[in-house]
C-alpha cells in the first residue's frame, strides 16, 4: 500500500497525542511550552497534507500553515517571557506551584 493522505493524518495524530500527554503531565513550564510546539507542528502537517491531497493547486492549507507558524513564533516569545517573569518573582518554573490565582 503506497503512502497516502491517511498515513500523514495518522503521523500527525500520533505527534499531537504525544504533545498532549506532555502538556498535561509535565511539571516544568518550559517543557510544557516545547510540547505545545510539537502539537502545533502536528496540526501543520495535517494542513499541508490536506492541501497536497485534496486541493493540490490551490495551496490554501500551506497558507494556513504559514499563519500558524507566525502565531507559534509570537506564542513562544510571549510564553518564554511570562515564564521568566514568574521565575523572577517566585523562583521556580514548576507548573504545580503556579498558584497565584488559586484560593
Amino acid at each position: 500500500m503506497s503512502v497516502g493522505l491517511e498515513h500523514y493524518l495518522i503521523l500527525s495524530a500520533v505527534l499531537f497525542c504525544i504533545g498532549l500527554y506532555g502538556v498535561l503531565s509535565k511539571r516544568n513550564a518550559v517543557v510544557i511550552l516545547m510540547c505545545v510546539e510539537i502539537m502545533l507542528n502536528a496540526v501543520n502537517i495535517t494542513l499541508v497534507a490536506f492541501s497536497r491531497y485534496v486541493v493540490p493547486t490551490l495551496l490554501t492549507g500551506q497558507i494556513f500553515a504559514i499563519f500558524v507558524m507566525a502565531v507559534a513564533a509570537a506564542e513562544a516569545a510571549v510564553g518564554i517571557a511570562i515564564i521568566i517573569a514568574i521565575y523572577r518573582s517566585r523562583g521556580t518554573v514548576d507548573a504545580e506551584k503556579f498558584d497565584l490565582m488559586k484560593w
Partner: peptide, 28 residues
Amino acid sequence: IIVGIMLTREMWHGSSSGKLRIPALVVG
C-alpha cells in the same frame, strides 16, 4: 526555548511528571 531553559535555572531538577501522569496518558 534554549535561552528560556538557561535563564530559568531549573534544568538540574529535570523534567519530571506531575500528579496527572496517568489521567494524561489515558486522555492521550
